[in-house]
Design a protein around this nucleic acid. Structure first.
Length: 692
DNA sequence: AAAAAAC
């Protein structure tokens, strides 16, 4: 199929790039001379820096440091003083050292300063902010909707979940229902699991797809297409789901289990059953929503959508002069106070899609009021990782600033003092991760009662085990009935857990014709012998372009980074065992291009934007199709081509092809051994634009 | 089972 998939007329995704120019004050700070002299890194007390005079040079009163800035500062200090500084064993230094294997393992000697000058030593200021334009177009994850051109694999399996939807109560916590016995006698779950969706299982004992959906691949496709073309005013999430709560019109709704607002114990039950089937990669039903036709919104401007002049100006400055479809779709309803579920690659402008109207909304609510010292925040944005929270703030902060609103980041891994200090002074928008937010909340240092609008970025992820309950506790502290927004590239009915409790009559949006496969990403699976894995990985990664390698565990990420390093390929690791400063720094080094290989766990799978990653290698295959989609969405951005290579052992072939089915991705499988030409070819592919 | 998320 033609890959003229560019929504809105091939506007480059650049649109979403915030300008990290002079307006971003943390750059100034980083350069500030003398910063490094503050002695131990322990100068955590906010007051240390807080009173620095130069602060307001950019017009922003009392800027607060964020982790990124801090890391930048640390790094700057390290560079300036590395000759004498005792930095202890630092793995991340590997980036500086092309290939000293023995070094990398031995405890760092502090005389590293005598090493040949690092090439970047003379770069005065980290320029990474500048050369890393965009972040918004993340999740270009393959769209699940573009199914029609996909080769056969499992039409019949997939279709049920959509067809059934309208007449079925379904929701994910149905899984708490007694298991149907047919589950137990299914030994191999991986492919089975995609047939009866999890939602199907519990509450739909009898009714199955064979009733209403005779397996008719061709026809399925037609239906799918219709649906996808949004010709159908299909019940949106709510019609489908909430209607059930009224419970009168639906025959099957009388099941007592099916409460509209599940109680806590419901969730516990859900957790248990979720744990029981922890290894089953479930494809939830897609949320059915209004699709936004790019053509329909082509001529709308941000101003038309209701955003104020200042905000429009900042957006334009970021390169977002006209709204992308997802933005055109969500801005108005958000301003109108609707709860919104939106699916769109971040690359489609997700962050701005919720960020801009959120700022406008907060602004409006404060119209005529003074922003008082110590005011409680009015808006909350939750993200699954600290890096993502940071990234979101980098996009939103300039927007907020333009109208005099303040944002602050609230996440773990960094001293809380500064964050608390910011809260004491009063901020309007907080952006963070659940742990620290809940922590401060419980300490009474963060008052969420004034939160009028909450965004869950990567909303489906936030509904997963481990995140769900903290997120629920946080949401319960926000103003009752306040507005909730869920955004994700893979938004499905897994979010029912939160939707049912917190959202009222949500509007669901997705962008029509947003292709997943999109033609810009080439997916390959390499079937290998385990004993060859290291060697093959090394040859894949030994290349010019930026390569992101995913592993399943932190330890392996660490090990691989070291292996690559030992082989003379500079590589850094990114995972949760690193302290936040290293995490931030290592990611930044990849972003700035100082290092071309980053080995990460799934901490980097979602939302993280690094420009120009043209190869994603999955050293370990993911277990879930969503993970596959998010990981591979780190490449193929901005109209560029990208390749995703997944290494699997022979015995994983079936599992892998099942997973690809669920992800709705077609990828050839090739058996390879070290030295095979294919490896070389994949590694040395030319990065090219695929705009045409 | 792992990863993420608080100290």
């Amino acid at each position: 199929m033609p890959k003229s998939k560019k929504p809105a007329g091939g506007r480059p995704a650049k649109n979403f790039e915030p300008r990290y120019g002079a307006t971003t004050s943390y750059q100034d700070r980083k350069r500030r001379p003398g910063e490094s002299s503050s002695g131990t890194q322990g100068s955590k007390s906010p007051s240390h820096r807080g009173h620095r005079p130069a602060e307001s040079s950019d017009g922003a009163p009392k800027r607060r440091w964020n982790a990124q800035e801090r890391a930048g500062r640390d790094e700057a200090r390290g560079i300036r003083t590395h000759a004498g500084s005792d930095r202890g064993p630092r793995r991340d230094d590997r980036s500086d050292r092309p290939n000293r294997s023995y070094d990398s393992k031995a405890p760092r000697r502090d005389d590293r300063g005598d090493r040949p000058a690092r090439s970047y030593d003379d770069r005065p200021a980290r320029s990474y902010k500048n050369d890393r334009p965009a972040r918004a177009y993340d999740d270009r994850a393959p769209r699940r909707d573009d199914r029609n051109d996909r080769s056969a694999r499992s039409y019949d399996n997939k279709s049920p979940r959509r067809d059934d939807r309208s007449d079925r109560p379904t929701r994910s916590y149905d899984s708490k229902a007694p298991r149907r016995d047919d589950r137990s006698d299914r030994p191999t779950r991986s492919y089975d699991s995609k047939a009866p969706r999890r939602d199907d299982r519990g509450d739909r004992p009898t009714r199955s797809y064979d009733n209403d959906r005779p397996a008719r691949p061709a026809q399925d496709r037609v239906e799918r297409d219709n649906r996808r073309s949004f010709g159908d005013a299909r019940p949106s999430y709510r019609n489908d789901d909430r209607a059930r709560q009224s419970s009168s019109d639906r025959p099957r709704r009388d099941d007592p289990r099916r409460e509209s607002n599940p109680t806590r114990s419901d969730w516990n039950a859900k957790s248990r059953s979720a744990a029981q089937e922890a290894h089953v990669d479930v494809v939830h039903e897609r949320l059915q929503g209004k699709a936004i036709q790019a053509a329909l919104v082509a001529n709308v401007s941000f101003g038309d959508l209701g955003l104020g002049e200042n905000i429009v100006q900042v957006l334009t400055g970021m390169g977002a002069s006209a709204p992308f479809p997802i933005q055109a779709a969500t801005v108005k309803p958000i301003l109108n106070g609707k709860d919104v579920l939106a699916r769109g690659r971040t690359g489609s402008g997700k962050t701005i899609a919720f960020g801009a109207p959120l700022v406008e909304s907060v602004l409006r609510s404060q119209k005529g009021q003074r922003r008082e010292f110590g005011r409680s925040p009015k808006a909350l944005i939750l993200a699954p990782t600290r890096e993502l929270a940071l990234q979101i703030d980098r996009t939103i902060q300039p927007i907020a600033r333009s109208v005099g609103l303040f944002t602050t980041q609230i996440y773990g891994g960094v001293p809380a003092g500064r964050q608390v200090g910011a809260l004491k002074k009063g901020v309007d928008i907080i952006i963070g991760t659940p742990g620290r937010i809940e922590d401060l909340m419980n300490q009474g240092k963060l008052d969420l009662s004034q939160i009028q609008i909450t965004v869950l970025d990567e909303g489906d992820h936030m509904c997963e085990l481990g995140f769900l309950e903290p997120v629920q506790r946080i949401l319960r502290e926000t103003a009752p009935g306040s507005q909730k927004l869920l955004f994700s590239a893979t938004l499905d009915r897994e979010v029912a857990a939160l939707v049912d409790e917190f959202l009222v009559d949500p509007a669901v949006y997705e962008v029509a014709g947003e292709d997943q496969d999109s033609g810009t990403i080439d997916h390959r699976v390499l079937v290998i012998d385990h004993r060859n894995k290291a060697e093959i990985l090394a040859s894949l990664v030994d290349r010019e372009g930026k390569t992101l390698v995913f592993t399943r565990t932190r330890a392996y990420a660490e090990m691989l980074a070291e292996q690559f390093d030992d082989a003379g390929i500079r590589a850094l690791a990114l995972h949760g065992d690193l302290n936040q400063a290293k995490r931030t720094r290592n990611l930044e080094r990849m972003t700035s291009g100082r290092v071309h290989v980053l080995v990460a766990t799934d901490v980097a799978a979602r939302g993280i934007h690094v420009d120009d990653i043209d190869l994603v290698v999955q050293a370990d295959a993911p277990d879930e199709y969503k993970t596959y989609l998010h990981r591979s969405g780190r490449t193929g951005r901005a109209g560029r081509s990208g390749t995703v290579v997944t290494l699997i052992p022979r015995q994983r072939r079936n599992r892998m092809s099942d997973l690809l089915d669920r992800a709705e991705i077609d990828a050839p499988f090739d058996e390879v051994r070290p030295g095979d030409a294919l490896i070389e070819e994949l590694a040395n592919r030319q990065l090219s634009n695929v705009d045409a």
